[in-house]
């Protein structure tokens, strides 16, 4: 078995401490009973209570969740199609297409946000919830596409050919053979798109309109005014939700992975 040297253990420990210490501080202080952020006033759920009485914050949370659900769904469909196109189809303008799929992954958000806003203005598209939904779909479909495409690359092309050879038309082949094999990637693509949409501030701030104040926009405007214990509480809840989702997702994929590994082992014996 492989063992880690002291230096490696130290690197890992320091790296993880760097990642988790600030979050731990934030979480602990969300349970602080004191009004002063920095003074420890004993454990308390006071700020969570305040939070649930803050109608504006709750409304923003509802908007953000709805937005994430809609844009992640659209991005999952479009992104999966884009992945299929890149992995399986030959067509004109493939290079431009690949460029457009990969570019949003690294494009500074400020440019994406500005350009989408100017598009909406040019076409008199009302700024607000649906503008953000379109913007988030555009941004996140690239992430879905890359995840699904890398999974598709591991799916033996001859499986799809075998299905067609056995009389299965293309659409049904996709649904009965390809999709079951790539679903973990599609699911994690959806989760990532959901998280990115929930997270986005810059793009949303460009294309938002009245009545579409998302959670990050609201938190941002509060944070600019200084640290507030209530914000610690919001952040803690968000962290808990994301962590739970991720752990469930990784357990799901791990189990199917483990099954495959066991199978491969069985075949070798």
């Amino acid at each position: 078995m492989r063992r880690l040297s002291t230096i490696n253990i130290a690197a890992l420990a320091l790296g993880l401490a760097f990642l988790y210490l600030p979050i731990a501080v934030l979480v602990i202080y969300s349970f602080n009973g004191s009004r002063l952020v920095t003074l420890w006033g004993g454990w308390s759920l006071r700020w969570y209570g305040e939070l649930f009485r803050d109608a504006a914050m709750l409304e923003s949370a509802a908007i953000s969740l709805r937005l994430a659900l809609i844009s992640a769904s659209a991005a999952t469909v479009l992104g999966t199609l884009a992945a299929l196109a890149l992995a399986r189809e030959r067509f004109h303008g493939r290079l431009l297409f690949a460029g457009m799929v990969y570019a949003p992954l690294v494009m500074p958000e400020i440019i994406t946000g500005l350009s989408l806003l100017l598009l909406f203005v040019a076409f008199n598209f009302e700024r607000g919830f649906w503008a953000i939904a379109v913007a988030h779909t555009t941004l996140t479909l690239s992430f879905v596409a890359v995840i699904v495409q890398s999974r598709l690359a591991t799916v033996d092309r001859s499986l799809e050919e075998a299905a067609m050879d056995l009389g299965c038309p293309p659409l049904r082949t996709f649904l009965t053979v390809t999709l079951p094999l790539i679903w973990p990637a599609v699911a994690s693509g959806f989760l990532l798109a959901f998280a990115l949409s929930l997270d986005d501030l810059v793009i949303a701030n460009f294309v938002t309109g009245p009545g579409a104040t998302t959670l990050p926009i609201r938190i941002y405007s509060e944070v600019r005014l200084g640290v507030k214990p209530e914000i610690n509480a919001v952040c803690t809840i968000m962290i808990a939700v994301v962590a739970t989702g991720l752990v469930i997702a990784s357990l799901l994929t791990k189990r199917s992975q483990a099954r495959q590994d066991r199978g491969a082992l069985g075949a070798r014996l």
Binding site: D156, S158, E161, A163, M164, D165, L166, G167
Partner: peptide, 30 residues
């Protein structure tokens, strides 16, 4: 005539067995 309408069947070099279906499911697929 697309492959799925040709009355010929192929046994693939990699076998191309559907990993998510059982042996019976694979044979029943066509």
């Amino acid at each position: 005539v697309p492959p799925y309408r040709r009355p010929v069947n192929m046994m693939f070099q990699s076998y191309a067995l559907f990993p998510h279906l059982t042996v019976a499911g694979n044979i029943a697929f066509g």
